[in-house]
Amino acid sequence: MKETVKIKSKKLNVFYGEKKALSNINLEIPERKVTSLIGPSGCGKSTFLRCLNRMNDSIEICKVEGQIFVDEQNIYEKNLDPVLLRARIGMVFQKPNPFPKSIFENVAYGPKIHGLANSGDELNNLVEVSLKKAGLYDEVKDRIDEPGTSLSGGQQQRLCIARAIAVSPEVILMDEPCSALDPIATAKIEELIDELSKNYTIVIVTHSMQQAARVSNQTAFFHMGSLIEVGKTEDVFSMPKEKKTQDYITGKIG
């Protein structure tokens, strides 16, 4: 299988003050595939995800060493604007966090601030397309001006995905997007991830190994701030190379 590498981390070390959160992470993330990051709580998988769009910048004590390349460009380079990076790499958070505004305004916000739509019609169209891609359009088309927070949890999360898609990112980062959702809503999101992976590179952090097994093409297992094992999902789950991975997926640690 020939794969293009979209994101590549090289000797990545992250510190929270004195504490080392990630040590020496070298990971390649293939383009237009789903990569899942698994591991027990506090293993650094979310920290790694947040390094990819420099969301950690806002944490004062967080210090990042090493390099992350997106399309061969180091995103920790001095003159790189993190705002531009975040427009290219969208993010969906653990808890659905729609803005306290209408559904339309939620999706339109990104395109508006980046000036992606030249006219009202274009913006309407963009919002519609994004909602359709997120599989939400049919459910909300009659109440697009109602508040985003009036939707159910699963709908809110899909709204957040639509909001991220509206800016046409290349990569979508998802930080445990289903942990606050019920199984039916989770199934819908997983379906959506599958659909989206045709056009976007997706990195998903998940607590659920079943979810990782269901949605991802590649799985990376983190433990105590280190990347233990990475490989094709079916390989990692069926014949892990490392003992720790084996212990984790069989429930001995975690």
């Binding site: 803005f99 306290p100 909001r163 991220a164 800016v167």
Partner: peptide, 23 residues
């Protein structure tokens, strides 16, 4: 104001100042 609102805006590529004034 919950930090999730700030993160949502910044994650979309809003500047810090935009996140504050808009949300």
């Amino acid at each position: 104001v919950p930090p999730s609102i700030r993160e949502a805006a910044i994650g979309l590529g809003a500047t810090k100042f935009q996140a504050v004034t808009h949300h």
